[in-house]
């Protein structure tokens, strides 16, 4: 494996992804990510001069909706997914800006 993921990088990626991993899981993830980067290095060996970057895998564009209201009030159903409910709102732990 050419790419070595350091413990610091693993820590940082974990914070960004809001993941708490055990030591064992971290080691596994470091090795997985190292192999992914190896694969990217392999792709980088290809000469892509003059090739348009691909934006989407499907050869489809301009999929639009018309600006018409089709959804009514479905609050009761939507709130079934909430961790907690108060006064019609999703109740979450205190967040201070």
């Amino acid at each position: 494996m050419a790419n070595i993921i350091s413990d610091e990088t693993m820590e940082y990626v974990g914070i960004l992804a809001k993941l708490e991993l055990s030591e064992e899981e971290k080691k596994q993830a470091e090795s997985d990510m190292g192999r992914m980067l190896d694969y990217i290095d392999k792709l980088n060996e290809l000469d892509t001069t003059g090739v348009e970057p691909m934006s989407h895998v499907f050869p489809v564009n301009n999929v639009f909706r018309e600006d018409v209201v089709v959804n009514g009030d479905d609050r009761e159903n939507i709130l079934k997914n909430a961790p907690g409910v108060k006064e019609g709102a999703f109740k979450v732990p205190k967040t201070v800006e």
């Binding site: 600006d67 018409v68 209201v69 089709v70 009030d73 479905d74 609050r75 019609g88 709102a89 999703f90």
Partner: peptide, 25 residues
């Protein structure tokens, strides 16, 4: 009249979560 990616109303000032659907939540 509607949100950018779903057919929910953009009207200002409705009761909480009355203009929501699976997409915008």
């Amino acid at each position: 009249k509607t949100k950018i990616f779903c057919g929910c109303s953009t009207e200002f000032g409705g009761a909480p979560n009355t203009h929501t659907c699976p997409v915008c939540t």
